[in-house]
Design a protein around this nucleic acid. Structure first.
Lengths: 157, 157
DNA sequence: TATTGTTATACTCTATAACTATA
DNA sequence: TATAGTTATAGAGTATAACAATA
């Protein structure tokens, strides 16, 4: 029985989900799990969650954006952004600046400290992607991104 | 002001996350969100969640597998499988069969009804992937799967 | 002692409704 | 009336510890 059990494990364990690997969605889910796990560890060194880094990136690249535009950009619910922005604002990484002539929305602006932290985190994320995708050639990485963006563009609302 | 607001939206709204789209992880997350949303709707017609379909697939392809092996295969925690299998068993789509000489694990076996439901759901999932990836050529789909599996294989534990 | 299945629990992510203050 | 931000809440998905039965 020990022999049976061992040979079963050794011979077929690696392909028990063979049928599912024919689905791109399943493969993406499995790979994204690996990527997000490593990325979360990398960003934890900066006290950032993955979503916080995304928010910081968009605000640095689009200073003055408001929360509704930010939510649309990252495809998040406005309500789920509140705590994330609260945290970043409390840490003085960005500010909610009043807009002249409009008192119901704020312009999100990165602080100097926010820009500096973002630059360090951004470099770390580039390092993370280099490591996690190190088995792909430059051409393969470019092809992967091109294919993913082609799918997203087709279904862009 | 209406003009300013409109031109801002029209000119820069589409590329506010341009910097993030350089990251494969971000692009995968965005695309997987679209794919999983559509897939969930497709599987809801069979009263299946995405995870239930994965479980059913692995059990159909590997009759006799136990819960620990199933959890390893799908990279889930054993504890999180309990309710899913409970549901599938209560609906008589699969059974927990006792194993001769081993009373602490069960052999998961698909029922005839389970195989039939799986065949219908499987066909629907293939249809879903065909629709959601319809902008890609056969070669592109194959390339995408190959790249994803190459990443996964490299980091397989 | 180690393994299998299970329970309980907690934390993250996501989705929705309703509120406030503004416009 | 509609919009921006907010609050509360609920549902998935995921992770961990501890337990009973069994090996």
């Amino acid at each position: 029985m020990a022999h049976t059990s061992h040979s079963f494990g050794a011979e077929t364990e690696a392909c028990r989900d063979a049928d599912l690997t024919r689905f791109t969605g399943y493969n993406m889910k499995r790979v994204l799990g690996l990527v997000q796990g490593d990325l979360a560890q990398v960003l934890a060194e900066f006290d950032l969650r993955v979503i916080s880094f995304s928010v910081l990136t968009v605000v640095v690249q689009n200073p003055g954006i408001n929360q509704t535009q930010l939510a649309e950009t990252l495809k998040l619910e406005r309500s789920n952004l509140v705590q994330i922005i609260d945290d970043l604002a409390k840490r003085a990484l960005m500010s909610r600046s009043p807009i002249a002539g409009n008192r119901r929305s704020y312009a999100l602006m990165p602080s100097g400290e926010g820009r500096l932290l973002w630059q360090r985190a951004h470099a770390a994320v580039i390092g993370h992607e280099g490591r996690i995708l190190s088995m792909l050639s430059a051409q393969e990485k470019e092809a992967l991104n091109r294919l993913l963006l082609k799918i997203r563009d087709e279904w862009a609302s």
